[in-house]
Amino acid sequence: MRQLNQSELKEIQLAIFHKEITSAEVLAEVYDHYVSHLQGFTEKEFASQLWELEQKFTYAYCHALQSKYNKMVREDIGKTQWQVLRKYFCTSRWIYAVGILAVLYFIANQTQSEKEVGILILSPLILLTMIWFVFIWRVAQKIRPIKRTFKGIAIPINSSSATPFSERIYLPVLLAQVLIYFPRLFDFGIDFNPILPGIAAVITAVMTLYMLSLLEVWKIKSKTALL
């Protein structure tokens, strides 16, 4: 086992760069495999061994691996969030959910004006936006060593877990937009005003539980993934 010199490392990075891998997890794994393998060979054997690795880790193979990995991570995040959400309604944690609903019911009863309803719906969305900023910062911190290795390479490297997680943060914001603007497009002839605080409380409750579940998923996944 020997330490590879800078020019050898640069050669490996260049070989991997041509594969255009964007997933930080896959990139790190492929790079580690290359370096670990080549460390077991002499400088003379380096070129031939690198060529052999290149025949195994082809462009098509790396992209298939990346695509399957991204799909797996997406499904895993969805599955974990669903499990967390289901837990809120388990007997052991029902008080937690009932507590949130009671607080929101109280707030909804106090809510009178359209402005107050807006604030009620917006509050979890504002929190989600803040979570998103912290999330982006944390992911950047975690993938920094990988980005540093592939510095100067014009391929956007990101955590495979970051995109599906970010999408889950945007989702309620987009839904809220639809809920706010859709009724304004069509005149249903229904006076929503008396039930508006109630609807707002339900939406806020759903969004709050959604936000808490997402935070819990982040906490769980941050132990093992680049999140």
Binding site: D32, D76, L226
Partner: peptide, 27 residues
Amino acid sequence: LYPALHKLEAEGLLTTEIQQVDNRVRK
């Protein structure tokens, strides 16, 4: 190997840990 490892991870049979080794990230 790698598709098999990722599959086992997806099935919840394996868990991963990221560590910094010799200026590179190891899974």
